[in-house]
Design a protein around this nucleic acid. Structure first.
Lengths: 223, 223, 223, 223
DNA sequence: GATGAATGAGTATTCATTCAT
DNA sequence: CATGAATGAATACTCATTCAT
């Protein structure tokens, strides 16, 4: 409550932000604490007043990234009622992150991967954090599907497979965005996604003929 | 043709193999030239008689990995005629790589990702190599699909979308295997894949009712 | 006399006490001002309101240690009249310091040694302080010896050598306790001491046959 | 056997020598690897081709010191037959080390103490090395005593106490030399030692009246 | 007077690369 | 051709001390 605590939190946030910027561009191992300090415009030692190790700083930066990602998704979906529109909005905006020109977030995403897979990686012993993040996203999709079922828009029989569908959708989204980045946008990812979503929606909609998916997609893109 | 050249090629291959072993476990930056030399049972300085830099060595190792991956896939598909079985075989064995206990190949795959995405990454200016690798895989799948169409097993109308379908399948496969690794096998990837393939095959088979997909999958798994 | 001065003295004493605790465990260079501040439950900066440097703080702590050591010895000897008992009490309690499980005092003692011997050591230019401390102890022993002579218990001819005897006894005591600590109690120091004292007392007692040294030692140990 | 091995050993010895020089003056923690490298006139990194850590380097330096000390003692005693002369020679030359003007060895000795006593000290978990060193010295003295007994020069009854006598003598020697160093030669250590040795020899000689200790000492000092 | 945030110089250690043998 | 000794730049982290509040 005291002003000091507020300053401390503020400074912690500043450093974390700077760390996120640097880690996103350089990755964990190539980034140096000195660079992060310079970015935050503070002395190198000051970093260690707020974080014990470079690893801790990395974790904080990743958390900031994940939280920002999730909350921006949540606010996007906030005022949408129609389950189909929600689903399409979710997938579109997931990939938008990779289409943005400042898309360093993708670099960070791969870096998290790296640090999760390699023994001695920062996240190797913290894979539960990654898992929880993925489960959070899966929950969002699962809820959309079940909501659609209860509203009579999606087929009732998909309810029992909602988690599987959600898991597969997430896998596709991540695989697609990585391929895109790796190949310098060689694939036209939006049209690939539309194609995937047409198959998916045809499979889950109760009355596919009542929906013009292209219109829904176009409408969503317009916002 | 001279014995020296033969020795040189042989030694180059040995070093590349050792490099692949080390890079697969440690990743590019954590791997040291000394470790690679030790693995190849030669002196550190000798490496530099065959490769100019650590980067060159990494590129050679990745090439060796990709070539081995592609040729093992080719030989797997070599004696299979039925397009559906070919398709399923392809997807199964792609994921098998990630299910193997010594699945260091996944680590390397992510490392390639990392080095492709990061500015200053080894592969950042060689992303065309990654693209060509992906295009090679896409070509295999596309050919399977077109073969199925011409044999009257897959729907004729998918011919024009064969590349899109192949691209999406690859994206799903990579996304799924990465998620699996990241989350310590929290997701049951084989059953997820089966689920995905059921939807896919229902969409592309001309007469889905004539095929018992589960039987085909089980049969394939048996081999 | 003003309350502020009293507070200042009290606070100075608290900090010195905390410093002694930390220096005793960690030694001068491994101890950090931050740890001392934490032990004293004050802020790091506050230390520098009371002491100019870490060196000054160390000197104050050592003084506190030496004073405490000497005054506890004095009070131990206060009510003992018999010179032989006084002598044995002195040696026993000197070594007791090293037998106590929390024998951090030994660490400090060696640390003082270190800082006295090394050029650039805190005590290198203050060795006179160390010398005075040793002279203080020598004085105590010398007085015991001379008292014994005047009481007709010790041989008269040792009077002229009293200082030499005292110096040698101190050297033996310190050497013995250091060896003990260094070797993890490999030597049975109490029995070594008894052995040493038997020789010593036989040399200085006027009528050794009148004394049962073991009884005197046992009696002393009982207190 | 190959020249390379010889060079490696030679270089290892050079570095160890440089390390001993620096550690002797600065102590373990104040000495820096850079200073040692500069003293050895090699690059900092080269140190790590020969020693894994600063700790290993310290241990090697201490071993060099101890070995040198022990072998110089041995060669001194080599051609002396008379047990009493051997005993006096041993004590004299032990203290000589501390009287030499370049007596940095004493600093190192205290540093070893420090590193043996402090938790986290380099020698804390290697105290057995220190113990073995002390036991080596004790063995030398014990042998002298037993030799004297068997030659009919020392009293037969001291045979059973030979180890205790040796232990006490060592303790005295170390304590005395430390006090001397700490107090800037305030005590006249040679005369203190003579005094101590007179008592000791009177206690152990079978016929003290047959020996003129002062003459023996003077004679020894003359060499 | 008390605080604790900020500093920046200092340290051990790693490693790609070179080059004399 | 092969070696491996030598290099030195780079990096994470520590801590005594200062100073604005």
């Amino acid at each position: 409550m005291s002003p000091k605590i507020i300053n401390r939190e503020k400074r912690t946030a500043e450093i974390t932000r700077a760390a996120l910027d640097v880690f996103s561009v350089k990755g964990y191992s190539a980034a140096s604490v000195g660079q992060i300090a310079a970015t935050a415009k503070i002395a190198k030692g000051t970093i260690y007043e707020y974080f014990e190790t470079k690893e801790d700083l990395y974790i904080a930066a990743v958390m900031l990234f994940v939280d920002g990602f999730q909350s921006s998704l949540k606010s996007l979906l906030e005022n949408i009622d129609d389950p189909l529109t929600r689903l399409i909005t979710f997938t579109k905006s997931s990939l938008d992150i990779c289409d943005r020109n400042d898309a360093e977030t993708t670099y960070l995403f791969v870096d998290i991967l790296q640090q999760s897979l390699l023994k001695n990686g920062v996240f190797y012993n913290r894979r539960y954090l990654v898992r929880e993040m993925l489960l959070g996203f899966r929950k969002i999709i699962t809820n959309i599907l079940l909501d659609g079922v209860s509203k009579g828009i999606f087929k009732p029989e998909i309810a029992k497979d909602a988690e599987k569908i959600a898991t597969n959708l997430l896998a596709f989204l991540d695989g697609a965005s990585l391929h895109t980045k790796m190949t310098e946008n060689y694939f036209d990812i939006p049209s690939q996604l539309d194609y995937f979503m047409q198959y998916l929606t045809q499979s889950i909609l109760l009355n596919p003929e009542n929906y013009d998916l292209n219109a829904t997609i176009a409408e969503q893109a317009g916002n």
